[in-house]
Design a protein around this nucleic acid. Structure first.
Lengths: 402, 402
DNA sequence: GGTTCTTTCTTAGGGCACTTTATAAAGCGT
DNA sequence: ACGCTTTATAAAGTGCCCTAAGAAAGAACC
């Protein structure tokens, strides 16, 4: 048993090459050598390793440019899988993705409710095993489970500190518990970070240097990636977009969350006495938001104004973030964008084009995430793939337990 | 000529070890091995290299903990020097620092005025040579020159894109020009980034994970360091603190720069008819700001109110930034803090303690930078030291030309 | 239909930064 | 004085990546 080469920069080259193949689609060894800076000889051996791992396959020949035509390489999508789990009080979403980030399975079960953590872990492990069985996926080809949970987390320890949404959990070391139960590497992270990695893994973000995924569920958060690496800050609490102060309706400062999230839109609709007309029931806040968004899409004027207002405030927040982080790419994810996503995209895009400090030097691409609703679950799965297959740590050590 | 070992993670270990010795003061080889994760054997050879380079010396023995007492290592302050230059229209500051970041020489000459770039480069090179001569420092022990300039820069190319403050310069490849003239590696960066590195190099920031240095000169900028690495964003235009939108005096949104920078304080004083009483001349805006700050320090009520107002707005901006970047350390630098610095520190500190999102998980240390006034020049010198001796790139390639 | 050129990919050998293992050096405890 | 612990070095081995040289496969030209 040789000691892991700790070094100050461990052997990431295999991961980086894999990441390039994944992102740049079919690509030749020579092209890989050029973009990484490694030599063709080295690339040859690195690729061989990836092929014996089964991660990569040769898919045919490229066009000749005057000599031997290159052999194109691509990921072998069904060689590995990852599971993503989004914990919620009302429902839990399970997603299985393959190597290229495509969803191959999806399940939804009732939420945590008031279940104890230990009981919940058993339920989760069971459901994961059942889902994989149903898809005919062997556990040996599953790289791990990415769990996304609301509330303050200790990412480094993989623990849920306390979660007002999930019963009365307090300091639950979920990563270790679930890892023991399901016998797979487990990662725990928040929804926005996961969604960002999900965009990076499946989407075509490879040329974005500074990307942010804005995640709006019940609250508003964001995940920032710099060169594909998660920006975490001092305590993994970076990018709490909902907590930034913007100018509220009456000119007084307000948290973005208070005036732009789905709850605030619903409250505002009530204040304006639109409860009846828009068919709000007051049971599930999110259902009510959905109703307003649907009405807006149908062309209802009041509903449109409500959504637009929320979108404008969100745009202000994104503008501040884009200026501070010097972003060149933004995507919107989360169930809140499922219906009225395009309206939000338009508002953010317009605002950035108009007011971004560096708008003369470069623009910011704004788009809707793929799988808007399940972006967090998909992202959890992508996060575990990235951590296991193409590690890109910096600062905080990788937060996995196997 | 062997090809530079590109690798995906070039041999940074020497630099990292040096950086640790610099930051952690006298430290033994074993302690270094522990904190880096390298073995004691490796550390032995790495340290030997640093000692033959002259960068590090053995300074004595530590206390025994039951066996052989460790030999303590520390940097050899006068083995290397770096020059920092701050370009300004009114004046140019030259600073020479030694390895531990202490200032060993300082000169000020008239500013660029309307001089042409090519002429200016000759003057700069001459002054640098003269200064080094006067200090009896050989050029072979100078690692390079760090130039700090206002206005939009192309950090990667080392060029000044255009500078309203420096004559009518347009797209001046200053790094290459000056490097050719002075025969030393040259780096170009903006004031805030430089000041941040300066704090990191000379100050005791080593345990800060996410640090920001707020730089207020005529404008307001900030430089963020994550684990000692400069955060640059997509186009090196990150952290333009002056450009974030806060709630202005009348409740309408305003750029932070418009309501908190020295110019705005002076304008406000005029609006209030305090011109005479506070002795404002209207010639040099910065002199007037200084006068107001002095009056505030003396206890003048109106002046205090003006400074406090500016400080409160700045605090709002820093709060937003601290929330988004999840900072654990902030320092204030720049000539604007020379007189009334403590007032600003107090305001920012109070605000963060009160309103920071993660205030229950960790606090943010706020302090005044050492060498407040010349922080940018010192930082330029520190930047060149870091780049040459302890490179920590990520994303954007190192922006040096030698 | 060869020969030659260009481009792609592989093999072989070597350097370097680590590692493990073993040993020397220098103090502490009995 | 002797062993024990801690610190530092020496020697041999391993793995990653490089250079150098060659094989493979088509394009271009005769």
């Amino acid at each position: 048993m040789t000691k892991q080469r700790v070094s100050l920069s461990s052997g990431t080259s295999k991961g980086v090459v894999f990441d390039l193949i994944r992102a740049q689609g079919p690509i030749s060894r020579v092209a890989l050598a050029e973009t990484t800076g490694l030599t063709q000889a080295t690339m040859s051996t690195v690729v061989r390793q990836l092929m014996t791992d089964g991660l990569v396959v040769e898919t045919g020949r490229g066009e000749s440019t005057g000599g031997k035509p290159p052999v194109m390489l691509d990921v072998n999508p069904s060689s590995r899988f990852a599971v993503g789990v989004q914990l919620g009080r009302e429902s839990i979403t399970f997603v299985v993705i393959n190597l290229s980030g495509a969803i191959v399975g999806r399940t939804r079960t009732p939420g945590t409710g008031t279940a104890e953590p230990s009981e919940m872990v058993v339920r989760l492990a069971g459901e994961i095993d059942r889902t994989l069985d149903g898809l005919g996926i062997e556990k040996s080809s599953v790289v791990g489970v990415g769990v996304v949970a609301p509330g303050p987390l200790d990412i480094a320890r993989g623990a849920i500190l306390h979660s007002p949404h999930l019963g009365a959990w307090r300091d639950v070391p979920l990563r270790e518990m679930l890892s023991d139960a399901v016998r797979l590497p487990v990662i725990l992270d928040n929804d926005a970070t996961a969604a960002a990695i999900g965009d990076f893994w499946s989407g075509k973000l490879d040329d974005a240097v500074a990307h942010a995924t804005v995640y709006m569920g019940t609250g508003i958060g964001a995940g920032v990636l710099i060169d594909g690496i998660v920006f975490r800050g001092a305590s993994s609490n970076a990018c709490e977009l909902g907590q930034i102060v913007v100018t509220g309706r009456d000119g007084s400062p307000a948290f973005l969350e208070e005036i732009a999230d789905p709850g605030s839109v619903v409250r505002r609709a009530r204040e304006l006495g639109e409860e009846r007309r828009l068919g709000l029931h007051g049971e599930d806040e999110f259902e009510d938001f959905r109703a307003i968004a649907m009405a807006a899409v149908r062309g209802d004027e009041q509903a449109t104004a409500l959504i637009e207002e929320s979108a404008e405030h969100l745009a202000s927040g994104v503008l501040t973030m884009a200026n501070l982080f010097d972003l060149d790419s933004v995507s919107l994810a989360g169930p809140a964008f499922a219906v009225a996503g395009p309206t939000y995209v338009r508002a953010v895009s317009r605002r950035l084009d108009a007011d971004l400090f560096v708008r003369n030097q470069h623009s910011v691409r704004v788009r809707l995430s793929t799988d808007v609703t399940d972006a967090a679950a998909v992202g959890g799965a992508a996060l575990v793939m990235q951590t296991e297959l193409a590690p890109r740590t910096m600062g905080l050590k990788a937060a996995v337990s196997a």
